[in-house]
Amino acid sequence: MSDSATYEKVADIISEICGIDRATITPQSHAINDLGIDSLDFLDVAFAIDKAFGIKMPLEQWTQEVNQGGVYGEEYFVLEGLARNIDKLVAAKG
């Protein structure tokens, strides 16, 4: 699945689960700051993404990296960055 296709799938999932107008979601949207997804809804989003792509997003590791200042939150929580990391996980599982 290409980066773009991954982003489209993620945006569809967020729109459906969180009840957010699909037209307002962009690749530059920050899941929390822009879309207002709270931590509980994010669990549902994570579950749907894990299922859709057959992966286990390392959310605990990502959160730890952000909290420790190793990476910016944008890397994982802006949708284009999230899609890019999903593609890495899909590629890694072969």
Binding site: L43, A46, F47, D50, K51, K56, M57, P58, L59, E60, Q61, T63
Partner: peptide, 9 residues
Amino acid sequence: EHDGSGYAV
């Protein structure tokens, strides 16, 4: 049903 990172279903 699922063993997620930081969550389970």
